Amino acid sequence: MEVRTIKVFTTVDNINLHTQVVDMSMTYGQQFGPTYLDGADVTKIKPHNSHEGKTFYVLPNDDTLRVEAFEYYHTTDPSFLGRYMSALNHTKKWKYPQVNGLTSIKWADNNCYLATALLTLQQIELKFNPPALQDAYYRARAGEAANFCALILAYCNKTVGELGDVRETMSYLFQHANLDSCKRVLNVVCKTCGQQQTTLKGVEAVMYMGTLSYEQFKKGVQIPCTCGKQATKYLVQQESPFVMMSAPPAQYELKHGTFTCASEYTGNYQCGHYKHITSKETLYCIDGALLTKSSEYKGPITDVFYKENSYTTTIK
C-alpha cells in the first residue's frame, strides 16, 4: 500500500517557510505537534488534498525554529505562539472599519479597549522592536488589523473576551517599542525636605499616572512627601515624541487643539466601556464603527496623549 502524501510549508514567522512532505494517514499533531492554519487549530486533523502548498504555523520545537521565533517575536515564552494563534482565530472574524481616516474595530468580545489602543497607536510616533509587531502594525494602518490585535493580546497575556485596560495595554506595548531616546527629568520640591531631581528613561519617561493635564504637570502637581507634608512635583525636561497622561476616570474637559487623542471610560472596574476622542479640525468621538463630532467635550476621561518633541522648564 502506497503512502499518500502532500507537500506543505511549516513556519513560526510566515517569513521562513520549511518544506514538509506530510503523510495523509496521520494527523498534523502526530507529525508536527500543535499546528495552526489561519489561526485555526488543526492539530487533530489529517492532511487533505486542499492543504497542498498551504502554510501551517507550528510551535518552535527545534533550534532553527526557536531562533526564527525569537528573532521575529522577541520572546522565548513557549506558550506565546499558541496564544497568538488562538487569538487570531477570533480577531480574523472582527470587522476593521476605516473611521475618520483611522483603522478602528467594530465592537465584539469586549474589544473596546483594543480599538482605543489601536486608534491611539496610529496617532503617536512609535516604532516597535519585534519585527512581528512592526509588520502587523503597518498592515493594521492599511486596514488589516487582525494579526496586530492578536499579537497585542498575546504580548499582554490576554484572551479574547476578557476586559482590558488601555493604560495597561499601552504599557505592555511600550515595553516592546523603541523608547531608548526618551528621557524625563522631574523635580520634587518640599518646604521641609528641599528639592530632589529624578531622571527617568524609556517607558517611565512617557507615562504618568495622577493627572490628565500635561500643562498642569509642567506647572506642578501636589504629591505627598515622605515627611508627610505636601510637596510639588513638576516637569523639568521632556525628550520624547509623545507623552501619555493618565488618571482614574473623572469628568474632564478636553479643549480642541490642546491634545492629540484621549480615552474615555464609562462604567466601573468590573464592567465598563471605552471610547476614543481625537482632536482634528474639530473633536471626534470614535466608538467602534461609530463616529460623532463636537466642538467641545466633557466626560469621564482616563488617558490623554500629547505630541511632544523637546521641553525644558522655565521655572527657576
Rank of each mutant, 00 (worst) to 15 (best):
K95N: 14
L173Y: 02
K191W: 07
S50A: 10
A177K: 03
T120F: 03
Q230Y: 12
V304G: 00
T91C: 09
I124V: 07
Q30A: 14
Y137M: 07
M24D: 07
V160S: 04
G29I: 05
R4C: 13
C271W: 14
K275L: 04
K46D: 15
V304L: 01
K255Q: 11
R167L: 00
M244G: 00
L118D: 05
Q195E: 14
Y113Q: 01
M245W: 00
L254W: 02
T302H: 01
T103S: 05
S240Q: 00
C149K: 02
Y84H: 05
D41G: 07
T10S: 12
Y113C: 04
K275E: 00
L186E: 12
S181Q: 15
T103E: 02
V185S: 05
H51R: 05
H273I: 01
P248N: 06
G299A: 06
F56R: 04
A136D: 03
G220S: 05
A108S: 10
A108H: 06
Q216I: 07
T232K: 12
G39C: 12
L283E: 02
T75H: 08
R184D: 02
R66W: 10
E2W: 08
A40T: 14
L37W: 12
I124W: 00
V67T: 13
E308D: 09
D165S: 15
A289I: 07
P300V: 15
K191Y: 10
A247W: 03
V99H: 10
Q98G: 07
E204A: 13
E281T: 05
Q216D: 13
T11S: 15
Q30N: 06
T76W: 09
A177D: 02
E68V: 07
P224A: 13
S181P: 07
A177L: 03
D63N: 12
G299C: 01
P249C: 01
N89H: 07
V22E: 03
E239H: 11
Y274R: 00
N100F: 07
Y84N: 01
E168S: 09
Y234C: 08
M244S: 01
D287Y: 00
E2M: 12
E308F: 09
A262Y: 00
K95G: 12
A145N: 04
Y113V: 04
H51P: 04
Y252T: 15
Q20A: 15
P224Y: 15
M209S: 12
P60K: 08
V188T: 12
E264S: 07
E239P: 01
D63C: 10
Y284S: 07
Q195F: 15
G220T: 02
F56S: 04
K293R: 10
Y274H: 00
I45S: 14
A145F: 02
L17R: 08
K127Y: 08
Y57Q: 08
A132G: 11
M245H: 01
E296L: 12
I45P: 04
T198P: 04
E264N: 04
L59C: 15
E264G: 06
I6Q: 12
L37K: 11
L118F: 11
G257H: 06
L81N: 06
V203M: 10
Y137W: 12
C190G: 00
A247F: 03
V188P: 02
A136L: 04
A289L: 06
T91G: 04
S50W: 11
Y252F: 14
N268D: 12
Y269M: 10
L88G: 05
A231L: 04
K255R: 14
T19K: 09
Q175P: 08
Q175F: 06
E215A: 11
Y138W: 12
T116K: 02
N268L: 09
G228N: 04
Q134E: 08
F242Y: 02
Y138L: 12
P78W: 08
Y113I: 04
T64V: 11
Y311F: 08
H18L: 07
A154Q: 03
D13S: 06
L254N: 01
H74Q: 10
S171Y: 13
E264M: 06
H176F: 13
F305N: 00
N178M: 10
N49K: 15
K298G: 06
I315A: 11
E215S: 11
H273Y: 00
H90E: 13
G257N: 13
D287A: 00
E308V: 11
P34I: 15
L59D: 07
A262F: 00
E162T: 06
M24G: 14
K229L: 13
F128I: 02
T292N: 06
S86W: 14
I301E: 00
R66K: 15
Q237P: 01
L173K: 03
V243Q: 00
M209P: 03
A136W: 09
N147D: 10
N187D: 08
T91F: 02
E281Y: 01
T55S: 13
S263A: 14
C182L: 01
Q20T: 14
T258E: 15
A69D: 10
D23H: 13
T266I: 13
N129P: 03
V42D: 05
H51K: 05
F305P: 00
D165N: 07
E239W: 07
S295V: 09
P300M: 15
I286Y: 07
P60L: 08
Q123M: 03
S181I: 09
L235N: 01
T282S: 14
T198A: 12
R66V: 12
A140T: 09
